[in-house]
Structures are given as structure tokens and as C-alpha cells.
Amino acid sequence: MAEVLILVDAADGAVRKSTLELLTAARSIGEPGAVVIGKPGTAAAVKGTLAEYGAAKVYVAESDEFDDFLVAPKAEVLASVVAQASPAAVLVSSTPEHKEVAARLAFKIGSGVLTDAVTVNPDASVVQSIFGGAVTVQSKVSKGIPVITVRANSVAPSPAPGAGEEVAVPVEMSEAAKAAKVVDRVVEAKGSRPALTDASVIVSGGRGVGGAENFKIIEALADSLGAAVGASRAATDAGWVPHKMQVGQTGVTVSPQLYIAVGISGAIQHRAGMQTSKTIVAINKDPEAPIFELADFGVVGDLFTVAPQLTEELTKRKG
């Protein structure tokens, strides 16, 4: 059976959910080989989970140096694993960093790269959702080994045991790849909420929230659902929340199971980033707000009473 490589995204001794999604998607094409690139000890911590989700092989490329660099050395190491394994395809998560790794890999091995796949077919062709979800395209890589980045939450992860055979990969980084060096990593927000990109529930606030202080209403609702917090461009433009929380055309594109838009009118800018969410709920005082055209359920009302009531109700029902 053909091998399909996936690039593992691991942090703090655990794989991200998107990695389990990649393993699940890879199994539709062939036998998954999981590539772990990171500091020593990364693979040991996650190997069990990778095998549980179908990794027949776990390629281990570990070095203390990886913490000092971002994209370029990872692309080099991944290219060396591709040369060794000759896979049928390479699947990578659609995070900004891993998309860049995928692109540089494709360049190195003379392939094409497809980004933000929402479905990966058994023949390694993909479905992409473009123009903010308005158009669906079937695409394929027409040269070389397909390199595909998969959008988070596109595949439901399911376990299927694999052998998890460890394969050591020698780590070699060129001087050119080491030219851009990470000199500091700064954590700005406390990390108790899930990351926006792979959260299965997102609560976003917009112009209607009215100020930075009021965002605690959004945060409280998010916490009652274990959700990530997002924002519309109006809220980030106003400086109420940081730009990294922006969902939309020039921000993050998300596709969660549940998206709750609070005080967001639903301008095309915003819709482009959340239109493919499975279920959309909206709270807005304007009955004409375009967000209601997308919503599976909407309440026309004052967010300052509806949102806290929802938070209270959810907390109550949780017992």
C-alpha cells in the first residue's frame, strides 16, 4: 500500500487535533507515515497517539536547533523524508507556518501544492472552498507528488491502530535555511482557550459589542462552551481585541462545528472567513443584518441581555 506522509503539529507533549485529522484523511489515500520535526523528546510523547490514529511509521527528526527556526529547516528535513519514502502524497495542516513548509517542500521536490483543502479524495485530488465559500472547486496536483494542506475541522478524526514503527531521520540544515533565526517567542494572551484555527466552537464579537471592556461578555459565553474567541474586523480595527483574533477575508478563516456571531452584521469581509462553519447562530439587534441570511438560528435582540442569558443557561444545563 502506498505511503502518505503527514507533518505532525505537536506542542507541549501533545499533538494538535489537526494532526489527527491529517492521519484520518491520509488513510483514505494510503498508509500514513507521520513525520515529527521538533526538539528531542517530541516523538516519544506523541508516538502512541500517532499510532492510535493509524501511523504505520513515525519518522523522527529531532534536534534542539528546531526551536531556533521556523519554516525553512523544516521544509528541508521534510524533503529528505519524502526522498526516502517516495510517498503518494504529503498532507500538512493549514496553519500559516505549515502552509509555508508545504509550499517550500513542493518547490524543492518539483511538485505542486494545494492549500486549504476541505476534502481529500482517495486519488489525492481535493475539494477547496474559495471566494469566501461562494465557489467549490475540485483540484489536483498535476506535477510530482501532491503536497496538500488541509483546513482544520474538515475531517472528523477517527482512531484506527497503526504499527507506529519508529524511523530515525538524520537532521541536516543548510546554512541558507538557518539564516532567519527566532530570537524570542512572546506569549501575549493566556492560553486557556482553544486556538481559533482548530477550535470546534467559536464565539465572535463585532461592532455591536461596543468596546474592549464589553468583550468579557463574549469571553464568558465562549468559556461556557469551551470555545475560542474571535472578532470581526470592526472590533479589531477599533483596537478592542488583537488582530490575531480577526475572522474574515484578511484574518483567519475558520470552519468550526458551531459559530456564534454576536453583534456582527455579517459584512462580506467577515462572511468570507466563517461561511463554511457547520452551524451558525447569530445575535444582532438589526433584523436586516446580513448575518441572519447565513444563520441556522438567529435572535433579533440586545446582545447585552441575550448573550449573558445564554451563558447562564448553558452553565445551568451543564449542571
Binding site: 465557489v135 467549490t136 445575535i283 441572519f292 447565513l294 444563520a295 438567529g298 435582540g301 441575550v306 442569558q309
Partner: peptide
């Protein structure tokens, strides 16, 4: 190196139920 094989306009989302808040909007959600 890549090719769009085909495309289609995505079906627009079915408009859901929109209710006016009568004091129980949060409960209804």
C-alpha cells in the same frame, strides 16, 4: 503544477429560524 478540474457555485445556505427576543432569546438559543 496544479489544476482546477471543475468548479461549482456553492449552494447558498438555507436560511434558518430567526426569532425576536421576547426576554427568552438566550434560552431559545
Amino acid at each position: 503544477t496544479t489544476q482546477v478540474v471543475s468548479f461549482e457555485v456553492a449552494p447558498s445556505r438555507q436560511k434558518g429560524e430567526i426569532v425576536k427576543d421576547e426576554g427568552d432569546g438566550g434560552v431559545k438559543i
